[in-house]
Simulated assay, not measured.
Amino acid sequence: MIHIEKVHNKHELNNFIAFTSSLYSDDPNWIDPLYIERSEHLSEKNPGVDHIEWQAWVAKKEGKIVGRITAQIDSLHHDRYGADTGHFGMIDAIDDQDVFSALFFAAESWLKSKGIRKVTGPFGLNINQESGLLIEGFDTPPSAMMAHGKPYYATRVELQGYKKGTDLLAYWMRLKDLHFPVSLQKLMEKVRQKVTIRPLNRKRFAHEMQIMRQIFNSGWQNNWGFVPFTEREFARMGDQMKFFVPDDMIYIAEIDSSPCAFIVGLPNINEAIADLKGRLLPLGWAKLLWRLKVSGVHTARVPLMGVCQEYQFSRSGPVIALLLIEALRDAFFRQNIEALEMSWILESNTVMCTILERIGAEPYKRYRLYEKHLTE
Rank of each mutant, 00 (worst) to 15 (best):
L323G: 05
G317R: 14
I337A: 08
D330W: 00
Q335P: 00
E338W: 04
G317T: 08
S343L: 00
A331W: 10
L323Q: 06
A331I: 11
A327P: 11
L322I: 10
L322G: 09
I337V: 13
I320Q: 05
L324V: 01
L322K: 12
S316N: 12
M342G: 06
L324R: 00
I337K: 00
F313G: 07
F332M: 14
V319N: 09
S314D: 06
D330A: 04
S316T: 13
V319E: 10
A331G: 14
M342Y: 12
I325N: 01
A321F: 12
I337Q: 07
E326G: 07
I337T: 07
A321Q: 15
I337D: 03
A321C: 12
D330S: 04
A327T: 08
I320N: 08
W344T: 05
Q335F: 00
N336T: 05
R315W: 06
S316Y: 09
G317F: 09
D330I: 00
E341D: 11
D330M: 02
S314P: 14
L340R: 01
W344K: 04
V319Y: 10
S314E: 13
I325H: 00
N336P: 14
L340G: 04
V319F: 11
I320A: 07
G317I: 09
W344R: 03
F332Q: 07
I337L: 02
L324Q: 04
A339N: 12
V319R: 12
M342L: 10
Q335S: 01
S316C: 05
A327M: 06
L324E: 02
P318F: 03
S314G: 09
I320W: 02
S314Q: 13
L328S: 11
L323I: 10
E326L: 08
F333T: 12
A339R: 04
S343W: 00
I325K: 01
A339C: 06
A321D: 13
E338D: 11
R334Q: 15
F313E: 07
I320F: 06
R315A: 14
S316M: 09
E338Y: 02
R334C: 01
I320S: 06
S343Y: 02
L328K: 11
V319H: 10
W344S: 02
F313W: 05
R334V: 04
N336V: 06
Q335A: 01
R334N: 10
S316H: 12
F313P: 06
P318W: 10
A327H: 09
A321W: 09
F333V: 07
S314V: 00
F333W: 10
E326S: 14
L323M: 08
R315V: 00
G317Y: 11
E338M: 09
E338C: 05
S314I: 07
A331D: 08
V319Q: 14
